[in-house]
Amino acid sequence: MLREFLTKLNTAWDSGHYLSALVQAETAFRGPPPGHDGAFFAQVLAWARSYVGDTQGAREAFGSAFPAGTATEIPAGARQEEAVGAIVRAAKERRVVILNEAHHVPMHRAFALRLALALREEGFTHFAAETFLPGVAELARKGYPSLGMGHYSKEPVFGDLIRNAMRVGYRLVPYEPEGDVQSIEAREQAQADNLQRILQRDPTARVLVYAGFHHVFESPDPLGNVWMAQRLKDLAGIDPLTIDQTTEAAFPVTTSAVLRSANGVFVTLGQYAGRVDIQVLHPREVLVGGRPSWLREWLGRKPVEVPSALLPVAQRVLVQAFVAGEGSDAVPFDQIVAEPGRKLMLTPGRYELVSQDDMGRILARRSLEVR
């Protein structure tokens, strides 16, 4: 039953039928198949909500099963420092930077986009993402993020991270092992082996690695698991700059910041303390009209009304904005489940707008230019 559910769900996502996938995830979350842990379906629902722009709903679904890691208090004498600049300065002599994310939090991808652009200016050449499938380099020749590049990259902000990485000249490279890898040990070692091969093939390569959660650990976790970053460090004989951004601050943070002690050493907290080099703490997500404020503040987007022709009369619909000229397999630039007052968040340019029902059927199309 689980295999059938996952096959149907992934078929919907692979086809760009995001609302259909959301409905399937909601149904499974409300009534998990007998014998299956509801935590898995909470995670799936979190992904599905994040893909359609419901960032708060994604956090709520994930948090129902997995409490967020929290930095409870700022250590005495520690000071906050703007994160992107601090990381770029720390990365000057490094060949590899490894940044993590929570797979249900698009805000992390927005920060990764900002960091990727800054690191490109400093000579980083390759962008290696956990989500990338083996054919990503071939698909990158199309010049836009496509549905076939990976799983998490189907989310629109991740798509824009890829779009911008390609625009500034990053080479997209996969590093996940192919096939069904059963153990943490086998997967982490295969990831490290693949990244080592990238470094060996091109001695001038400098790689931004974008991974999930604990893959950034440079020392074993409490259960003794050895993760990718530590294995790569031992295998390649290099010291990657490892960065956590998944820990939430329980104290005020006004901008994405790192902590330094009074003597200038980076401070890391919670389960990542002593296991990564740097920890980025983000401000609490604030919604304006149902959309997170970082879309405007970090990515320069502005709210755009959905044309009335695309709004539903009596059914639930997904409204998507595609960059004009990108192919039919493109990842949307933005998308929302239509609700009163909810707007698309777009940058200046030309778009093709589409409304889609929960079966993946196209209901209406409109062209739009944002000035």
Rank of each mutant, 00 (worst) to 15 (best):
R197A: 14
G57N: 04
F266E: 05
K8T: 14
A321H: 13
K233D: 02
S293T: 15
D234T: 14
T7I: 08
E285P: 04
R366H: 13
V168P: 09
A102R: 05
S153P: 01
M345Q: 15
R171D: 00
E305Y: 06
R94V: 01
V157D: 10
F62E: 08
H214G: 05
H282T: 09
E155F: 05
E297G: 08
F62N: 06
F66W: 14
G135I: 00
R79D: 03
G135C: 02
L9R: 12
R94A: 11
P240N: 11
V88M: 13
T246W: 02
M1F: 06
V136G: 02
T7D: 13
A250T: 07
D160W: 08
A78S: 15
E81R: 11
V23C: 11
A236P: 13
I87Y: 15
R171H: 01
W294G: 12
A321G: 11
G349Y: 00
G85K: 14
I198C: 03
R171A: 00
A65H: 13
G274P: 10
G135Q: 07
Y51R: 14
G35E: 10
L45W: 00
Y18I: 06
S153H: 06
V207S: 06
L199I: 02
L259S: 07
P283W: 06
V354Y: 08
Y152F: 13
P106Y: 07
V52E: 02
V44K: 00
S50D: 08
V226A: 11
V207M: 02
G57H: 01
G135A: 06
A86V: 13
L235P: 06
F213E: 03
M1P: 09
A112P: 04
E352M: 04
Q279H: 03
A65V: 10
P33I: 02
L208D: 03
P307T: 04
E130C: 03
Y51M: 12
E130L: 05
R365Y: 11
W298L: 12
G349N: 00
V207D: 02
A90M: 09
R109T: 15
G290M: 05
L311G: 05
G270R: 01
Q56P: 01
F266P: 15
N10D: 12
V207N: 09
E138F: 04
D37S: 14
L295M: 14
L2K: 07
L45E: 00
L6K: 07
I238V: 15
V280H: 05
P222N: 13
E305G: 07
R59P: 02
G16L: 08
L368V: 09
R94L: 01
L45Y: 01
K142D: 00
L310W: 10
R284H: 11
H126Q: 12
R114Y: 11
G327I: 03
K142S: 01
A338C: 10
A118I: 13
G274C: 04
